[in-house]
Computed example of a mutant assay.
Amino acid sequence: MTKRDVIGRYKGSVMGILWSFLNPLFMLAVYTFVFSVVFKARWGNSATESKGDFAIILFAGMIVHGLFAEALNRAPGLILGNANYVKKVIFPLEILPIVAVGAALFHGLISLLVLTAAILVLGKPLHWTVLITPLVLLPLLIFTLGLTWFIASLGVYLRDVGQTVGIITTIMLFLSPVFFPISALPENMQPMMMANPLTFIIEQVRQVLIWGNIPDWPGLAFYLLISCLVAWLGYAWFQKTRRGFADVL
């Protein structure tokens, strides 16, 4: 179903699945131009930092946010868009959010390949720690799945959720260290940034992908524990509320 979801998204287009490569490249080019050329933003204080350095650091944050936002933005319409599964077929509805997260993961992996190629093209070293990236992303995937279960169910009963989630994910893009480092904020505001669930994962992805450092294992373990709790609560909520789906639809 994940494969069908991904292929169906590009069905009928001339370039087909090639758009999964082109979309992140176009967004990367636009954001890099705006922040590094127009606003002349720099990630650090190094005078030797190039626009390419800024681009790959920026892109790493965009990949994490994109994976999270794609699944959540689709969540409110998952059950509404598959009403036939609810009304006529005995179907495990709980796998629909898994399919959405799987499709988001596919696009995230494509973007990771693009980022890896960009690192090599720019002549930067590709560290062995890149192999740890799946372990760094695992807690975020579990956390995202839990929220997707919850929002997919809530979207059946509250149709305004679809609009609200889109606004929230956009806000989270600019309240995450995607376009600027945490150190750019005043010290009294940095704890608020760290409270964002994307901040820690974005920082750890950059550590293993770009700077070749070992991730914060205790921090990842704690994040994984919280993610499992969120996933369990999301799944329990979904199973509890699914009984009313057919009546509402």
Rank of each mutant, 00 (worst) to 15 (best):
R9W: 07
K11F: 11
G166V: 11
P76V: 00
A47E: 05
M189Y: 15
I90F: 08
F106P: 02
L224K: 10
V161N: 10
K87E: 06
N23A: 12
W128R: 06
A231W: 08
N82M: 07
L120S: 10
K87N: 07
I95L: 05
G102K: 01
N73L: 06
I57T: 05
T169W: 02
L158Q: 09
P218M: 08
S46H: 06
A83Y: 05
L209P: 00
K88F: 15
I210T: 03
S183Q: 06
A83L: 14
W19C: 15
L80F: 15
A83G: 14
A100Y: 00
L78V: 08
E49P: 08
P125H: 02
F91D: 07
R9Q: 09
L154M: 06
Y223S: 12
A83D: 03
P97E: 02
K124A: 08
P197K: 11
A246V: 10
W232K: 09
V101H: 01
F59S: 11
L105K: 02
A246D: 04
F91G: 08
L18F: 15
G234T: 10
V248P: 00
N73I: 06
D216K: 04
E70I: 03
G123S: 13
G81W: 10
L58G: 04
L158S: 06
I98G: 01
L198T: 08
S111F: 03
D53I: 12
K87P: 04
V165W: 08
S36D: 04
L198K: 11
L229I: 15
P186C: 07
W232C: 06
F150I: 06
V38F: 07
I57W: 02
L141I: 11
F68M: 05
G81Q: 08
L225F: 13
R42K: 15
M1W: 09
A41Q: 12
W237F: 14
G234N: 04
P181S: 02
T199V: 09
M189P: 11
R242G: 11
G166I: 13
V114I: 10
P215Q: 07
W149Q: 03
G155T: 09
G219E: 11
V37A: 02
I63D: 04
F238I: 10
S111E: 02
F222W: 13
Y157K: 15
F35R: 06
L225N: 09
V136Q: 01
L145M: 11
V130R: 05
I57K: 03
I79A: 01
Q207H: 11
R206W: 09
S13W: 08
M62V: 02
L147R: 09
K40A: 00
L229F: 14
F91V: 11
T116H: 03
T133D: 01
I151N: 02
L229T: 12
P181R: 07
